[in-house]
Nucleic acid binder design. Structure first.
Ligand SMILES: [Zn+2]
Ligand SMILES: [Zn+2]
Ligand SMILES: [Zn+2]
Ligand SMILES: [Zn+2]
Lengths: 135, 135
DNA sequence: TTAAACTATAAAGCTACTATAAGGTCAATA
DNA sequence: TATTGACCTTATAGTAGCTTTATAGTTTAA
C-alpha cells in the first residue's frame, strides 16, 4: 500500500503521514526501488490510533507516551490512566477558563447597543478602562 | 520611559513590546541617540489595551481591527459590537466542543480501573478500537 | 575599571500541521 | 514516441503569538 492509499484509507493528507514519521510517531516503512514508501496494515492501525488520539485532543507528546506504554504491554496501566486523567483536567480547566471569558464578553457586550459612535461605544470603553472585575 | 519600565508597568516582557511594534499594533516610539526606545503614556495605554484584548481572547488581527475603528471615532460602533458578537460565538463553540470532548474522555476513562496490565487497559483498548460513538 | 543590568537586532523554537517548490516515476493515451 | 496526468520524493516556508537564544552595544553602580 502506498502513501496515497493509506492517506485516503485513514482520512489524512499524505504530508501528515510523512510528518508523523518524521516526528517518530509512525515507524518508517520499507521503500520500493524508486523510493516510494510501502505501508502495511500495521501502519494503518498505528495511524488510525494517532488520529483518534488527536480527535481526543491529545498532544503528539502524549501520544508518543502512550505508544511507549504499548511497547511494554505487561506493565500495569496506571500510567495510561493517569495520562488520561491529566488530560481530562486540562480540558476541564480550559472549559472553565472559557466560561469565565464568555461571561466577561457577554457583560462587556451588554454595555453597548448599536446606536452609538465608536467614540461612545460601551464595548471599547469597557476594554479601555479595564472593567474586567469578574476575574 | 524606556522599554523595561513600560514592560514592568504593564506586566509584559520587553520582547513582547517589540513584537507588537513589529506587528503594527503599537506605534514605533521615538529613539534616543543610542537607539533606545522612548515611550509616552499613550504607549502605555495602547499596550494595556492590547493586553486586555488578549486576556479577552481576541486575536492580534481582531485587535488591529478594533484599533482601526478607534482611529475613526465618528463612525457608528456597529462593527465593534459585531466583532465582539463574533468572538463570543467563537468562544461558545469552543466551549461546546470541549464539553463533548470531556464526555468522551470521561467515558473512556471509566472503561478502566488501575488494576490491569497495559495489554488489557480499557483506555488503550477504547482508543484502539475506535469506540468513539458519542461523536 | 569592571561587572551587572539594560538595550539593540536578527534568527530560531514552540505546536501540529498545511502549502509550496522543484523534481522523479509510472501508466495510459494520441 | 511523446506527452499528459496522477502519483511520489525532499526540502522549505507559513500559520499564531509569542519565547528563547545569540550576539553585541550602552549605561550605571560599586
Ligand atoms: Zn493533554
Ligand atoms: Zn458599541
Ligand atoms: Zn475571536
Ligand atoms: Zn487502564
Amino acid at each position: 500500500m502506498r502513501i496515497g492509499q493509506l492517506a485516503q484509507l485513514v482520512g489524512v493528507e499524505t504530508q501528515t503521514i510523512r510528518f508523523y514519521e518524521q516526528q517518530g510517531l509512525l515507524p518508517p516503512p520499507d521503500r520500493q526501488d524508486n523510493g516510494y514508501r510501502v505501508y502495511t496494515e500495521k501502519h494503518g492501525e498505528g495511524l488510525a490510533f494517532i488520529r483518534r488520539c488527536r480527535i481526543l485532543g491529545l498532544s503528539l507528546a502524549e501520544i508518543h507516551e502512550l505508544q511507549s506504554y504499548q511497547d511494554d504491554p505487561h506493565q500495569p496501566c496506571t500510567a495510561v490512566n493517569a495520562l488520561l486523567d491529566d488530560h481530562i483536567s486540562h480540558v476541564r480547566s480550559q472549559i472553565t477558563a472559557l466560561q469565565v471569558l464568555e461571561k466577561q464578553l457577554v457583560s462587556l457586550r451588554a454595555s453597548c447597543n448599536d446606536d452609538r459612535e465608536v467614540e461612545a461605544c460601551g464595548v471599547l470603553a469597557g476594554i479601555s478602562e479595564g472593567n474586567m472585575h469578574q476575574q
